[in-house]
Structure formats: C-alpha cells, structure tokens
C-alpha cells in the first residue's frame, strides 16, 4: 500500500506545482453555477413556490455545487490510458513493480484531490454569495465518503473506456457518450427529482445516479436512509464494474503486442 500512497502523494505535489492551470479550471465552476442560478431562480419565480419536489432554491444550487465539483474534479483518465495503449508506452508501466490499475487509480486520486478541492472551494464561495449558507455540517463527512465512492465508480468506467484502445482505434467518442449519459442520467444539470417518474426508475437501475445524484442529494438533505441507499448502490456497482475492469485488463494485456523498445 505504501507505494500507492507515494504515487498519490507525488501526483498531489505535481498538481500543486501548476496552481494557475488548476485555478483556471476551477474558476469555470463559478460561471456554470451563475448560469444555473439565473435559470433556476427564474424557474422558482415562474412556479411561485418556495419548494419544488422538496428542494428550495438554495438546496438546488448547493446540489449543483457538489455535482459540478465532482464532475469537474475528475481527471480524464480514459484519454491517458488509451494514449499509453496506442503509443505502446504502457510497456514502461507494465514492467514496474506495481499493479497498472492501482497505479492509475492512485495517480488519478492525487490529481482529483487538488482539482475537486479547489473547485468546491470556488463553487462554495459563489453559491454562498448567491443563496446563503451551505447545508448542515453533520452531513459533510458522510458526503465525502459518498464522493469517494462516486469517484471509484467513475474510475472503473473511465479505465474500461481507456482499455477499449486494445480493440478499437478511437476511444474519444465513447468518453463523450459516457460523459453525456452521466450528465443526463446522473442528474448533473437537473436533479433527478424533476424527471418524469419512469425516467427516474430507469436511471436508478443504472450506476449513473450513484456517481452524481446520490452524493449531491444527500449533501443538501443528509438523512441516514439516503446515505445507506447510495452507499449500497455504489458498493454493488463497484463490485460489478470492478470485476469487469480486472477481466478486461487481463484480456487486453494478453492481446498486447509491442514492437521494438
């Protein structure tokens, strides 16, 4: 475990070495949240109600703050894994004394910790300014655990997309489609509570709500039942997707042909 902790630490320090680059990306959340504020303020005003589907305007904006921080804080691992497979540079990682997937996970976590932290910081500042203080601090620590679970799920899917490079020339479109499915079925731009009932049911049968909606919804209304429901979903999907990832990786490495060095 110590070597993976060291990889995490190195990536963390590496990320901190380029603060302006990260700052630029984190500021993007301010723009998105400001647009959401304009849109949802109008929605609440037009409907003439302080609460819609059990959420106040403040709840909705804090929901978006966390969902956007999770989304913007994720590293684009699929791209770097696919690049390593296509260029053959994966060979340099395969002969090192660590597991390739755990290496990618530790490095990705190191990058995300800085990026997600900064995004949440800027996002919280602007959300507080627009709609008032954040939800109860009692839910912050369990939220962090759910965010970690969401990150692991995202890692599994992203790594699977990256490994597709073993069988297909171009993996970027798969990444776009996965990202947009997360936007829609994960509830990034509209909380699932506002969806038609049939679509809510369909979405909940998939892993996407556990990646964004679950942690964000729990954050604004921290209830034990919501926590255990999301944590349970995350665990079940982690087992399923994690197993597929390990099998795909083993199969991919068997197919790998590297010429020269």
């Amino acid at each position: 475990m110590r070597k993976y902790a060291a990889i995490f630490r190195i990536q963390l320090l590496n990320s901190l070495a380029y603060p302006l680059e990260f700052l630029g990306r984190s500021v993007m959340v301010v723009m998105f949240l400001w647009i959401f504020f304009q849109l949802w303020r109008t929605v609440y005003a037009v409907n003439g109600s302080a609460r819609l589907e059990g959420l106040s305007l403040g709840d909705t904006l804090w929901y978006f703050m966390l969902a956007e921080s999770i989304e913007l804080g994720r590293p684009r691992l699929a791209q770097s894994i696919a690049q390593a497979v296509k260029e053959g540079s994966i060979a340099y990682l395969l002969n090192k004394p660590f597991d390739f997937l755990l290496y990618q996970m530790s490095a990705g976590l190191g990058e995300s910790a800085v990026r997600m932290g900064l995004t949440a910081l800027f996002g919280s500042a602007v959300t507080w300014w627009m709609v008032g203080p954040p939800p109860s601090p009692l839910g912050w620590l369990p939220t962090l655990l759910l965010v970690l679970g969401a990150w692991m799920l995202h890692f599994c899917v992203n790594a699977l997309i990256g490994l597709l490079a073993f069988v297909t020339e171009e993996t970027t479109p798969f990444e776009w489609i996965y990202q947009k499915l997360t936007f829609v079925l994960g509830g990034l731009l509209i909380p699932l509570d506002f969806y038609p009932r049939w679509l809510q049911t369909a979405a909940r049968a998939l892993p996407f709500p556990a990646m964004l909606y679950g942690p964000s919804r729990y954050f604004v209304q921290p209830e034990a039942e919501a926590f255990w429901r999301t944590a349970g979903m995350q665990l079940a999907w982690l087992l399923a997707l994690g197993s597929i990832l390990v099998l795909a990786y083993r199969g991919g490495v068997r197919r790998l042909v590297i010429n020269g060095g």
Binding site: V43, V46, N47, T172, P173, F174, W176, I177, Q179, K180, L181, F183, V184, L189, I190, F194, Y195, P196, L199
Partner: peptide, 21 residues
Amino acid sequence: LGMILNNTIYFLIWVIFFERF
C-alpha cells in the same frame, strides 16, 4: 456518429426540462 449521439444525449436535458416546466 459519436458526436451526433453525444449531442443528442446532451439535448435530452432540455427535453426533460421543458417537459417539466
């Protein structure tokens, strides 16, 4: 084709939004 599908899925957000509001 990937980009057409990508945009179509993204636009579903607005379909859901205007279905509700």
